[in-house]
Write a protein that binds this DNA or RNA. Structure first.
Lengths: 216, 216, 216, 216
DNA sequence: CATGAATGAGGTTTCATTCAT
DNA sequence: TATGAATGAAACCTCATTCAT
């Protein structure tokens, strides 16, 4: 399911990568809107601006497109985790958490179709592709747990169950994308991030203020 | 999309209802596992223990099964909301919230396939069916907002954004079902409910204890 | 294809005949409206006021209903031909023709669904059923030819081709049923018969009047 | 129901038109022989020499084939009416009528499957397709009425009801196709046209000869 | 006599994939 | 590289017929 395993007739590796990213980005909204199964090769070829036959120049089967999308999405998280780790040293646990949450939520909101995609289409992924996703989620949670642990060690946080809090932080990012339609019209991501960060911090802070950051 | 609108050849209303509930329950795990689109009428007939033709004695089309599932799921939420409202009078805001969260999470965990189903198959629902789901979610959120508002009025809670907290409470229930595989093996629903309830309360309590219920 | 060959579970011959006539009459408008193939056993049972299972008490298969209808329609023509032959002796050729045409057209108009039926569903009849219809039409034409021949012998008619005229007389009867919607709204069968009879007589009369029966 | 409204996956308009005409012509005898409903897509694909899937490259549904046939048949009548109108000026009413009848009957006999088709399958056409056929028939009748009126005005014809005569002329053309099997073996279209024309003229001529063209 | 739930063969339609151009 | 006409397996759905009641 690694991108490299996918059949192509081209030997121009760079072109293939470029086209595949193009395919992943073009097709994501379609998959989210109508689902993988209901999206036909004809649809895909159309949004990609190529013929059906030519599409098969870069992929081996329809299912490979799921793999390509996974690869693309994976970049986001790999990059994010790297940058997250870098935050450890430069900032206090609380400030690092605030910054990382901000980055994560903005990042997720920037690729909403991909975020939705995995909630919807997990079942269509091959067994090993599913494992890749699970591993990534576990990695992400583990990084957050480390970050939260640092805060506990420094006495800034008091947490009953690190995993649950890490999970909540991540899921809260997804939910901006998935449940935004349920919020009041015109609700802003900025507000979402600020208020949710407050809530999270209140639930883990060792020295809670009565109404933290109300002066903002 | 009401069950009554679905075509049947039988005029025995009771039999029809009974069979449809049987269909909804039988088919839910299949839909969750492989998705609506990948599940064939043959598969469905098999798990329901009927012939394909007989299945169509109770439904008009494959899509109607989504409607039937929705109706079945809807019962749960309707009943829950009624019981929730009853909690308003008899208990303090905090105790009511604790009890309602407990009921909600246990209830959702009791019909995991249905909970998963709507995250996965929303896009396959007809436009009006989708609206029904949205309305239900909004109703549920509104009820929680009322309950939270009571707590604010009584001075027990301090909340920056009622909607976001209501949303978090509901989503946290879903996440037991959706993300349980990411938690440590053998993690218990009882613990999940206790810790998540603590976290939620800490993020909204007006008079937080330093380490609430640490004596547990 | 004779009615007697059709399977029944009943030994009460009279009842069977009665029910079959009921079936033929009930089903005819349905067959005309939506065609034999599009009419289901469920439809048929409904218009006959019986259950599907009970319907099969009087017939062996759906196709048998075509045979039953044929039998019923056949009565009309058998009776008509008998009465037609009776006219030979009592009336002059011209008067006999006028009377027979009147009877035929009114008769056909009285069972419009059956008349339409054979134009539409001939192809669905079994080979031998088709032959029965053809024989009947040929018999009818032959009787008209005899009647026209009498007129030629008596010097009242002058006819180039007896078959064609006989055919035209019969078809003109069908056309009241088949093409009535093309005539002016409110066009009456009485007028149709009078004018068409005039036209036919003009085309065969040995001593044409300039404007026959204009005084009517 | 216009051909253009029918779904196709091809954007090559010429190819689509060509294939559709091929389909209409190939399928007509089959429809006449066994009826629209009894003809399967498999049958149709076979006589068209394509695979089932490829057939659906040019049509959206089986029913569309009826529309395609209609379009094809419509050409004949449109062309005929144009040529008919041209006859008005160049010939006397009687001669024009003789010529037009000859053309019409030969034309109808040239596409016997289409002529039969509409008597059989009218009920399977969509509501608006049916209207198109009705309009066409009315147009044709109206043209004949005009032509007959010219004859009345010139004193050549005496007619009690123009519509009925126009109707008879058209139906007589259909009947060569529909009832030919009832005539003597080897009966010729030439004779049919000559004798029927005589009969029609006799029934409308102002100055009838005693035995017209008997010397032929 | 009478019912209608149950069956499954066979119909229409879709769509991933290939290949001649 | 690029196209899109062509294929056929497999999906959904219907309905004549039977049989336990």
């Amino acid at each position: 399911m690694k991108e490299n395993d996918i059949r192509t007739y081209s030997r121009n590796t760079e072109l293939v990568s470029e086209r595949r990213e193009h395919i992943a980005k073009s097709v994501a909204p379609l998959f989210v809107k109508q689902g993988y199964e209901r999206t036909t090769i004809r649809d895909i070829a159309k949004v990609c601006g190529m013929s059906m036959g030519h599409l098969y120049y870069y992929i081996g089967s329809k299912e490979d497109i799921l793999g390509i999308m996974m690869d693309y999405d994976q970049h986001f998280y790999t990059d994010f985790v790297k940058q997250m780790i870098a935050s450890y040293d430069s900032l206090s646990p609380t400030d690092a958490l605030i910054k990382v949450i901000d980055d994560l939520y903005r990042g997720m909101a920037g690729i909403p179709d991909f975020t939705r995609f995995f909630y919807q289409e997990m079942k269509n992924l091959q067994r090993d592709a599913r494992r890749v996703i699970m591993d990534r989620e576990r990695t992400l949670m583990a990084e957050f747990e480390k970050m939260l642990q640092r805060g506990c060690d420094s006495g800034e946080f008091v947490i009953n169950d690190l995993t649950l809090v890490a999970n909540t932080i991540i899921v809260t990012g997804h939910m901006w994308v998935l449940r935004k339609p349920l919020f009041a019209r015109g609700y802003l991501l900025d507000d979402y991030i600020r208020y949710q960060t407050e809530n999270i911090l209140k639930s883990i802070s060792a020295y809670p203020k009565k109404k933290p950051e109300a002066q903002d």
